[in-house]
Nucleic acid binder design. Structure first.
Lengths: 213, 213
DNA sequence: TCTTGTGAAAGGGTTCACAGCT
DNA sequence: AGCTGTGAACCCTTTCACAAGA
């Protein structure tokens, strides 16, 4: 998949992920074709927004008809680069780390967790979901073996930066950070932050001060 | 806390949550005063962005000095409406639901989970983290008792809309939806979506096609 | 002197409206 | 006739640059 345009808004990427989610549910319910109008309603966006978002990557629709759900899913996943396996490693085997390691959905979605790391000697050697917990110092060595490209940080906030440094040094290309701390990495490393409380704060604000969309 | 301005960009709210996170870590490390420049660097944003974001709510800084970390945290949390307890209920006691029910951080952050619901008869009556799982049909009754204002959906995608309907009918004001499905609710109900795979998709895209910020 | 707070300018994303296909 | 794809207009957000204040 090649892009037609050089710069693509971050918001577009986020929406594409939403489109895939909605389209997959539509497909599960038996919808084969959909036009931008009802799809937009289901995604809570403007119809031309969808058409413009898709136009960054190509022409996937049929004029007068709409979009074929199945083929549109394939086009978008290809555009996002998720039509393949991604290998990931996880650092920080606490409660959250364990939960993620046991989450089967990662494999189903093509984001295979192939390594679990922690610096706590009591955790090293433990087996979780068929994976042995390894000392974080051996990260580079292990990644050399398994070729993981994405690192998942589930450490406490004060150890997040160190985990990030290890990942960068091991040659990882992207980081998914669950720790409630910002991390600093070289410009060519991609970081995504996941924080439930950010969303709860937004809810709190919207409920309290009445923003209703 | 009252706002100076009527409309506040959604992006501003998201950043305020980041500022709180970073400021709390700074406070833990002993920083008492910080100016917008280094704070901006730590948050990966522009310095005037921070000043403008804060200006929506008031004047929290001291010219020539900067911001007092502790008091800025208080100002922002007050501005977001998170300087109080929020009661929440959770629908969908699967793997994720259980993990969240056992997550102590919710209480620490003031988002108390005071009810757990599921429609599976085998789960009803089970006790998790001191909370008895109750039939979803009794949601309205229970919320009448405990006064929860936020609902957390952790059902499978095909049951998310029904869960949302129950929550709306029970008078909830905001929903945090972990189910991989969009939900439709009346305009005065606030919804936030949490989906790990959206973030992984973004990483995949950025790694593959080289967007490096 | 140093840093905030803010009007004005710049930049980017969203929506509109319609041309172009099927 | 119907719906996509897209240039142009609009709108909102971000950034700049500096006045105001400690």
């Amino acid at each position: 998949m090649t892009q037609k345009s050089d710069h693509i808004p971050r918001a577009t990427i986020q929406r594409l992920a939403v489109y895939v989610q909605v389209l997959e549910n539509l497909l599960r319910e038996g919808t084969e074709v959909i036009s931008s109008e009802p799809l937009a309603k289901a995604c809570n966006v403007n119809a031309s927004q969808i058409r413009k978002d898709l136009a960054y990557f190509g022409e996937f629709g049929v004029r007068g008809v709409g979009y074929y759900v199945k083929s549109l899913i394939e086009s978008i996943t290809s555009a996002l680069g998720v039509d393949r396996e991604w290998r990931t490693v996880l650092i920080g085997v606490g409660n959250l780390g364990r939960a993620l390691l046991n989450h089967k959905e990662f494999r189903l979605r093509g984001f295979n967790i192939v390594g679990a790391f922690d610096c706590d000697p009591f955790k090293i050697g433990e087996e979780i979901s068929g994976l042995e917990v390894v000392c974080t110092k051996r990260l580079k060595e292990k990644i050399g073996e398994n070729g993981a490209e994405i690192g998942i940080i589930t450490t406490p906030p004060e150890r997040a930066q160190r985990a990030a440094n290890h990942l960068v040094e091991a040659g990882i290309k992207g980081i998914l950070n669950f720790a409630p701390a910002r991390i600093t990495v070289p410009g060519d490393i991609n970081v995504e932050y996941v924080d439930i409380f950010h969303h709860l704060y937004a809810l709190s604000f919207n409920i309290t001060f009445g923003k209703t969309d």
